[in-house]
Design a protein around this nucleic acid. Structure first.
Lengths: 232, 232
DNA sequence: CGAATCTTTGAATCCTCTCAAGTCTTGTGG
DNA sequence: CCACAAGACTTGAGAGGATTCAAAGATTCG
């Protein structure tokens, strides 16, 4: 486990175009003025990560924050027994690693893994810290990012951990479809991941997913790519 | 539902002694200097709330924040069907109502109800807003409060919504005991509340609690007050 | 191509729910 | 102060959903 590299696979895309960032409304520092953005330009790098890539690992020293532009990430923690639970799913606009920004020596609290191809910006922790101590008047931007985590946590509880397993899975599929963007097609997480998210077992999940496919609720496009039936 | 008063019962204690606040380490504005604290002194009021009192109600306009000094509060939301789920429990040091501070017209997102006698300070929203726009350099204090909510949300997921119902209940009892302070004695929430927190039904919960009492894990002190067996 | 891993599916078991009736508690009004 | 009604808790019996265990296909990856 500790032998793996942090990123199983990623591609460097050069300096990001923060100023024209497509999701400028919602992404970290999105409402800073252009002067401040130029500071970022020189130190932030934009990368593509493959499905399964690990952005950061629970317990590792916090080097950078990750601002998610496209894709879905699972946030999980593992207890001392080694079993992992998924705390929440994060989509475009979320920033990963915030828990470490309060105390400079805090390691990552959880592991973040790509559930789809990601487009994300990597922000060195020092740059973030300097920017915030120089410009605390932008603190609301940061608080909004924390709020997004809290909303995702509440979603997990209300949508993915309540009611019968069938409903929970349906809610997850809807969330994945929503994060997926225009086409609405998404990669199906593994049975283990769906289990770690819903509290169910891979066996039970496999049974129910088979029902969904047979019942015409879930359609396969190609490979592991699926889409949901349009609800009227 | 909408006919009820906001606070079913509370007692005004006058202006709080913020400077010597017993939980100064962890409560809102705890690390501000004395000059700033004096601003608070003039507008913050300290109250005691009875068990069952509602601090704020989901959907109501956000008038004030509540800084919890002693006691336990349940944070719940109700879906359109009217069924309520408890998202988390908050104890001393938490501040309730933060979700409304980003956008001045946001109503409370959830309902906060006392699960024990509370000692809490009520902070007018305008005072908070002014303090933050005048002194954004203290933003980390606020972020720490958000972090506390997120940790409580994660606790719900990991401790109160995972594993068998018996374990979930045991974890809740431990948390209540932890929040209870020195004596470790706490009020038992209703079967409905324990159900809304664990995802179980009052019947199942009653059965398991009866087992705990018979098994010597849970002891009654008086009335509805209980304490846990000391674990070696 | 073969090993490891994941998915699928069956059968038996277990936990939790539902429904229901009886008991206890609580608050209100006479 | 007591009686009553409403609501909460308790407990039983039966039903159902989900788990466990196991074995047989798929997939993935080197």
């Amino acid at each position: 486990m500790s032998g793996k590299s942090i990123c199983t696979s990623f591609e460097w895309r050069g300096r990001p175009d923060c100023i024209n960032c497509a999701v400028r409304q919602s992404v970290l520092f999105a409402d800073l003025d252009e002067e401040l953005l130029s500071v970022l330009l020189s130190s932030v790098s934009n990368c593509l990560y493959d499905t399964g890539a690990t952005l950061c690992r629970q317990g590792d020293p916090a080097i950078s924050l990750f601002s998610l532009r496209k894709g879905v990430v699972k946030i999980e923690v593992s207890d001392r027994n080694g079993d992992a639970s998924i705390l929440r799913l994060l989509g475009p606009g979320a920033v990963i690693g915030l828990e470490t920004t309060l105390d400079s020596v805090e390691p990552y609290h959880c592991t973040a893994t790509a559930l789809s191809r990601l487009d994300a910006c990597r922000i060195p922790m020092q740059v973030f810290q300097r920017l915030m101590s120089d410009h605390p008047e932008h603190y609301k931007v940061i608080v909004r990012l924390w709020k997004k985590h809290l909303e995702a946590a509440d979603e997990t509880l209300l949508q993915f951990r309540s009611g019968e397993l069938k409903e929970r899975l349906l809610n997850i599929l809807n969330t994945l479809s929503r994060f997926a963007g225009e086409r609405g097609t998404f990669l199906l997480p593994s049975g283990r991941d769906l289990g770690a998210l819903t509290g169910g077992t891979p066996s039970s999940i496999s049974r129910i997913m088979a029902d969904f496919k047979r019942g015409g609720i879930l359609h396969q496009r190609d490979g592991n790519t699926y889409f949901l039936q349009q609800e009227e």
